[in-house]
Design a binder for these strands. Sequence first.
DNA 1: GCAGACTGCGCG
DNA 2: AAAGCGCGCAGTCTGC
Length: 832
Amino acid sequence: MVMIRNPDCTDCRHHEGVEKVCELGRGDKHAKIMVVTSRPNSKAFAQVLHGHLSDAGIDPAICYFASAIKCRNFDMNIGRKDLKACAPYLELEIKAVDPDWILTMGNEALQAVTGHSGIMQYRGKILEAHGRKVIPTISSAAISRNPGQTASYMANLRFFAAQVYDKAAKVKPPTIHFINTSYHFKVLKRAIKRADVISFDIETTRAPTEFHPTARVVSLSGTLVIDGKTLVWALPLFHPQSPFRKSWQKALRQLVPLMAKVPKRIAHNGKFDCRWLRRFGQCDIDITFDTMLAAHLLDENREKGLKPQGTSRLGVAPWGIDTKDLLTTPINEVLEYNALDTYYAYHIYLQIRQELQDQPRLMRIFKFITMPAANLLIAVEQKGAWVDRSKLVTNGKIAREMRDEIERQLMEFVSASESPGSSLFAESNSEWPTDARGRPREVNFNPSIWARWFLFDHLRLPALAYGKLKENGEQDPSMAEDVLLELRDLHPAVDLMLKRSMWNQLVKAFFNAYDELLTEDDRIRTTFKIAGTVTGRLSSGKEDSEKFASGRPERGVNLQQVPRDPLVRGLFGAPPGFTFVEADFSQVELRIAAFLSRDRTMLSLYQQGEDIHAATASWVLGIPRSQVTKDDRKKAKAVNFGFVYGMGWRKFIYTAFTKYGVRFSEEEAQAIRRVFFEQFSGLLAWHARQRRLVNDNRRVQNPIGRIRHLPDIDSPEMFVRGEAERQAINSPVQSFGSDLCMLSMIEIDRQFKSADIAAHTIGTVHDALMFEVRDDHVGLALPIIKDTMENLPLAKKFGCYLDVPIVADISAGKHWGQSKELTKEEVYAWVA
DNA sequence: GCAGACTGCGCG
DNA sequence: AAAGCGCGCAGTCTGC
């Protein structure tokens, strides 16, 4: 070891002012296990780390601890260059100790040992470097900052221990039956018919959707349970080496109907597989147990992918191939990978099912909400939302012309010679900005270096705020909307910049995206993620990118962020012969807050059917209820939503200005907050209750038992704890609101089907549902929608007695957001 | 040329 | 001392 150390090393800047130059690690010098981490020689650090290792079953006494950087200077950040400079010493150290296994902790150590960067991507995988096996995880210091990471960190350590000590995985790899003759295919059909359980999975080409011309199913695999025995099989389909390459669709048309009849159907993110199998098997198939959704329901913070679930639950090493292009991957590899997915998913199912059975409230949510929603969304995603093609063309043209015209006007301010001569329009005081190679930068009105030059140098506007402190110690002047609003009166270009930003956003994020994604049947499709949020809400957008090549148009606009501007929202609607129906829960989160807090004022307002936003407006503005305008009510909305979830007066001033254009002084804002909590005094007690609950239990739950884990409540940092406490207030409300909406969607769709009503669910936007109803069935559909939403079977299904009235506002017309809310009479006696 | 951090903005 | 919550995506810039 003496040979390695170089106390005179000056290879990187870290040697300057450090106590000991080139400090090597410590521990067993012939250890089988090497741990690469920052500051291995700090006593306090080592103590914590040794605790973690022991807990995971690794004896720290037989490890060698090394650092990626041998001169530890805590005032300096470590860059790639530093790691490179120090790499030879680490390499020598590895050779000298000669370990079989290396545990790297944190991104630095990962980079230093393997050369890869991206710890969140590589953690828990088995890599190879310097001829040894390497398993990366996050740094132990990250755990104390963010206790929320503890579970997966410990899972990584336990996995490392299992590999090092060669502990047999809990689940052994199965024998896989490859189906490559028509005889085997027949045997497979017979087996599926007899099976009680099927866990299945498909591999596909990287087509953007199952309807794309390049969409093919490359292989199909399954794990069957027949008479208590498992049978694992893999069927090649469109793969070039497949005997069924020419008849792959025919094979699916034979198999999918049989699979759909197996009593228990399991898959990991099965919504994806079911969409493809429906398309090519020409038969509806759904799932009874989705392991990804169940894992997420049990712990919304844990990695829910099949591989991380497999390593942490089953102790199996990450299996499989880099699925870049399946068609050029040898068939055996594809099939083995495909089959193992189904086998391990089946074993994960066995575990998770038990965990759900131990928590009956979660099981009920899974049974009555999660799985029905998943199966309903298969059809919703396949159907898509209808878009008015001619409107898309004309509205898009309007938006593009508006943006171009504004940019033309802005360009007049760019050339200094055309600037008016007043002091406000002073001549430029600096040179046109250049890039790193000295070339002039292009005009770019987006928040860019050029745009900052334009505003703050060329037009000499004052920089009122600055962005984040950068690595080089500089801060860019902020171009955020609220800052520009302050500068609006100083120069006409500011207003143009603001307007351009709005129109450009519409063009780029919406019109362009919709143009690209609109299919021939005039529909746009999204993917809803059921396990995409920590509260149980759906998220909407693109399919997981890993499944698809970059650069291609993909399935997936975000249906939940369609601007309310009629120019955009009005593009969506119902095709000829159909009516677009939107049903909104009225103020659902505030009603839930009233229910949970038991605040007497709020409860009685809702029980009397009064408008809580108007009430707040009259109190905070000090005017009688009758004088409250529509605008006042809108402002009160900001007050209500903010303060209910623990907003402070500073943030209130900020949001009141940026979102509603109202300025409040500090005194006014504090006074409004005070009045608010005087009126709704029950809210403060409720906030305190939620804080106590999360501090005691590290988790909170909503009225039907959906759990939000908040491990960050143990953070030593006040701010992080405060965050967890506010989440403890918001989560039960938001997640219950979402559950009401999901439950409605499921229940309404069920009734449509059983009454044979020609209506389709188009999607949800958190507290709203959208439907497409055949014109002659609107009168039948409207009462079902309203009745269901207002009278959900919460008591029957979840033992939850909601004593706040729930109200659904319904509107019906040709386009989204374009029609008037219906009165109760109109809902129950619809006249087209 | 690509990934990651960061900002800004669309929605509830 | 200070503190709404929950999302997805486009765009810029940096560093390799």
